[in-house]
Every structure is written in structure tokens, then in C-alpha cells.
């Protein structure tokens, strides 16, 4: 095993009204070859933009300020000229986006869009591979799917087409942003099994972004919890579920809907993720934290420190 990708001190800011709003700061992590690394947290925590920044494809690319390093194959992706980056995007690193309906061209048949994957990288179109991949993501009739326009497929089917598209060129790293939220459990199981097989058989690495902790528990090796633009906990999966340390992680686990529970028994974390413009330097979870110690939590930034082997937490309670 070796490192496939390493992100160092990633920060993203957006200019706004003269000043700037910091969306994420100081994100560092690495992904090993053949590893599934999960990023979890509520929406608005910066999971998706962190993932997109790895490929320098932030939605407002021209305006945002991105600092830090992303090392992949010994090159810093953030310094790479656009031309070279394009060769890596889609081929070595593929992204499965969250919203399939907006990620596909409504006017092109699915076939053309899949073939484009090859053409973009000047490869010969492999029709067999396309058929096979569509079968792998659970389509019984690849032919019909290929001949359909996106609006003729259901939400879940589109999601699967997106997944097939991402996997087609056998990437080394797959960034999967909520890959299965639109899918039912049987297909979810099938997709996750496919990803798992790719990882086992071809040493593919996967960055899994999800809010489904069950999936994390089942398929991931390591997990990082993000809150309000920062990482607050990182640990091996077993360690994380055995003894989560950060109050936010504990809250997420408690909020998990359990089979058989009625709505009223859910235990959502009260309050909301603060907006980026209201980010404070000290612990950003303080206003929702039940264990807050005003004097320590709300004054200075909290260090992201090792508390066990491969286990880091940013919370004063753990750092005595």
C-alpha cells in the first residue's frame, strides 16, 4: 500500500463584498491505494467542495481562492495547468456527482454521453465495455438505456448511468459524492458491492462522501467527520464506531434512524450548521454542543490532535 493522493492544508475562500468568506480551512488527509476513505457531515459542512477542489473543479472556479496542495502521482494537482489536469480528470480520477439530472446533457442520448468519455481522452470507444458496465450497475437492458434521453430515465437510473460513466475508464481514484442517495437498498447494495470489488480486485481507491453512516460502517476503511469547514475527527472505521470522540460525531450516530423507530424517536442534533460568513475561529460546534465548556471552547482555535493510533479529534474534552 502506498499513498495515492494526499491533500495538505486545503483552504477554500470566496470573495464577497470586498472581503472573503472562508468555506473550508486546513483540510489535510491522504488516501491509500485500494482504500475507501469516507467524508461525513451534514450538508453545508463543505464535503462536496472539498472533494471538488481536489480536481480544481469548484463551481465558481474563476472566483474562488484555493490554497494548499493536492499531491497525486507526485504532482500537485492545484498547480497543474488546465490542459494536463483535463487528462487526469475522468481518466485517473473520476467523480460521481450528487445530482445526476443536472450533470447530464438533456439533449444527448445516454449512448453519446457514454461514448464521449472515451472520445474526450482520445481513446477508442469500447462498446462491449459500455454494455458490461451498464449491466454491472444493474440495468437489465443496456440497449434501451443507451437509446434514451436522460428525461426518459428515472432518478435512480440516471444516478446509475452516472456511476457507469465514472467507472468506464477504470480510474485509480473514484470520488463518489452521495452515490446512492437516490437509490433503493437493493441497488445500493449492488453498487456498493461493485465499488468494493473494484477496490479489492483493481486496487482502486474511493473517496466516499455520504451522510449514511451505515454505509460508512459497512464499506469504508477510514472516516473523517467534517463540521463547518473543518475536520473534527478522523479515525479507522472500527475505532470510530467503537468509540467516537467528538460530540458532533456522537450526535450523528445518535441521529441515525434505526429500523423500526417512529419519526418522533429520532434524535436530531438541535440547531443548524452555521453559514460560512458566521464561522468563528474557536470551536464552531459550541452552540450545538451539550458538553461545551465556555472558557475553553469559545476562546481559541482547537487543535486537531492525535488521541490514539490513527485517531485525531478537535475537541477540548479529548485534549487534557
Amino acid at each position: 500500500m502506498g499513498k495515492l493522493l494526499e491533500a495538505k492544508n486545503l483552504s477554500i475562500a470566496l470573495p464577497e463584498d470586498g472581503g472573503q468568506v472562508i468555506l473550508t480551512e486546513g483540510i489535510s488527509f491522504d488516501i491509500q491505494k485500494g482504500e475507501v476513505y469516507s467524508l461525513v457531515g451534514e450538508s453545508g459542512c463543505g464535503k462536496t467542495i472539498t472533494a471538488l477542489s481536489l480536481l480544481n473543479v469548484l463551481p465558481t472556479a474563476n472566483a474562488s481562492m484555493l490554497t494548499g496542495e493536492v499531491l497525486f502521482n507526485d504532482q500537485d494537482l492545484l498547480k497543474l495547468p488546465e490542459k494536463d489536469l483535463c487528462k487526469i480528470r475522468g481518466k485517473d480520477i473520476a467523480v460521481i456527482f450528487q445530482e445526476p439530472s443536472s450533470a447530464m446533457n438533456p439533449l444527448m442520448k445516454v449512448r453519446a454521453q457514454l461514448e464521449e468519455c472515451y472520445l474526450l481522452h482520445q481513446l477508442e470507444v469500447n462498446h462491449e465495455a459500455i454494455d458490461l458496465m451498464l449491466k454491472e450497475v444493474g440495468f437489465a437492458d443496456p440497449e434501451r438505456v443507451l437509446n434514451s434521453y436522460p428525461h426518459e430515465l428515472s432518478g435512480g437510473m440516471l444516478q446509475r448511468v452516472m456511476i457507469a460513466m465514472a467507472l468506464l475508464l477504470k480510474p485509480k481514484l473514484i470520488i463518489a459524492d452521495e452515490p446512492t442517495t437516490a437509490l433503493d437498498v437493493t441497488i445500493q447494495a449492488q453498487i456498493m458491492d461493485l465499488l468494493d470489488r473494484l477496490r479489492r480486485e483493481h486496487d482502486v481507491s474511493i473517496l466516499l462522501i455520504t451522510h449514511n453512516l451505515n454505509l460508512v460502517a459497512q464499506y469504508s476503511d477510514r472516516v473523517a467527520v467534517m463540521y463547518a469547514g473543518r475536520m473534527v475527527e478522523e479515525a479507522g472505521v472500527e475505532e470510530f464506531f467503537a468509540k467516537p470522540c467528538h460530540p458532533y460525531s456522537k450526535g450523528l450516530l445518535r441521529a441515525l434512524p434505526k429500523m423500526g423507530s417512529a419519526v418522533s424517536t429520532l434524535e436530531p442534533i438541535q440547531g443548524q450548521v452555521p453559514l460560512p460568513k458566521n464561522f468563528v475561529p474557536s470551536c464552531r460546534f459550541a452552540d450545538r454542543c451539550s458538553q461545551v465548556v465556555e472558557s475553553q471552547c469559545c476562546s481559541a482555535p482547537i487543535a486537531f490532535k492525535e488521541v490514539g493510533p490513527q485517531h485525531k479529534v478537535a475537541c477540548v474534552l479529548e485534549q487534557k
Binding site: 444493474g138 437489465a140 445500493q188 449492488q190 456498493m192 451505515n214 460502517a217 459497512q218 472500527e238 429500523m259
Partner: peptide, 20 residues
């Protein structure tokens, strides 16, 4: 096929072709 936190209980896969 519902995933759970329990790693020893993997979701069961449905095998076989889906008809079109």
C-alpha cells in the same frame, strides 16, 4: 439489503438478471 452499523452483517445481494 439494508446496511447496518454491524460490519459482520453485510447487506445481502440480489443475484440474477433483471428483466427489461
Amino acid at each position: 439489503s439494508i446496511p447496518t452499523l454491524d460490519r459482520s452483517r453485510r447487506p445481502v445481494l440480489l443475484e440474477g438478471e433483471v428483466p427489461s
